[in-house]
């Protein structure tokens, strides 16, 4: 790690101003990606602006049709939140299986989304639920937010403030974790809103995406047998040390089915 100046503002305005004044500054949320990158000397910002003391970025609130989660809410807070558990249990489940307890106690929703790691869990939930990302400047729909590998629609200096998750009729998330990192080799989020279905996939490509063919099939018949005969094309899929594209394609179908099974099991309870 190299030396940098460290600031911990208490308001969004102060944080944004601090960043704009810095030649080469970065926001720090939970630090679960940024700190290792700094330690490996792969990033050498001159200023780090810690968002941890900004109250406006915190908290979980339920509205009539949505749940609002502040950007610096940690994964373990989402996992434990009675509000999230009541309205979108699949989201709490997802948060509870990110990384390990250390990561979940520090890592944040906003940090994960702004980083947009191709194997991260949260992008699947945001895209799979059709959430809206509220920044200090505007509101961005999830369909527009995730642009590419580690790329988002955020402009330089733009900060995620909170994320608004519409409450679905039902939703489920299943992932096949990388045995080393616990990131998703493939993770699939399925949600259903009065007839319309969203299916998002993380881990398989360079960026989270919607599996439209599954959405259409499930809109007609919301059950795993709707997906039985689907061959998922793998030509755009990642192939690496941990999984080939062909294997990932298999996992996309299987994880989609398991997300649906999770929904079914939840309904029985």
């Amino acid at each position: 790690m190299i030396n940098f100046s460290f600031q911990k503002p208490t308001s969004i305005t102060d944080a944004v101003t601090a960043l704009s004044k810095s030649e080469d500054g970065l926001f720090l949320a939970g630090g679960q990606t940024l700190i290792p990158v700094l330690k490996q000397r792969l990033a050498m910002p001159c200023d780090i602006i810690d968002l941890g003391d900004i109250n406006d970025l915190k908290g979980i609130v339920a509205k009539k049709h949505s749940v609002l989660i502040g950007a610096t809410t940690t994964h373990s807070e989402v996992e434990a939140s009675p509000v999230v558990r009541e309205h979108i249990p699949a989201l709490a489940e997802l948060a509870g299986h990110i990384g390990d307890p250390h990561v979940r106690n520090l890592g944040t929703l906003g940090g994960s989304l702004a980083n947009n790691d191709p194997s991260a869990d949260y992008p699947a939930a945001v895209l799979g639920l059709g959430a809206t990302i509220h920044t200090n400047q505007r509101s961005i729909s999830s369909d527009e937010f995730f642009v590419g590998l580690f790329q988002t629609a955020l402009d330089p200096g733009e900060m995620i403030v909170r994320v608004e998750f519409p409450i679905p009729e039902k939703s489920g998330y299943a992932k096949f974790p990388n045995p080393a990192s616990r990131y998703a080799i493939v993770g699939v989020f399925v949600s259903s809103f009065s007839g319309s279905v969203r299916v998002s996939v993380t881990g398989a490509e360079s960026c989270v995406f919607r599996q439209v063919s599954f959405e259409e099939a499930l809109a007609e018949h919301f059950a795993i047998d709707a997906l039985t005969d689907f061959a998922v094309p793998s030509d755009r899929f990642n192939s690496d040390l941990h999984a080939s594209a062909e294997y990932r394609a298999q996992l996309v179908r299987v994880m989609a089915c398991r997300a649906i099974i999770m929904i079914d099991e939840e309904k029985k309870q």
Partner: peptide, 16 residues
């Protein structure tokens, strides 16, 4: 070395 960190080198965890 392709497995140069714990992100890529898998060690068993308690639940394994």
């Amino acid at each position: 070395l392709m497995t140069g960190s714990l992100i890529d080198y898998a060690l068993p965890r308690a639940f394994d």
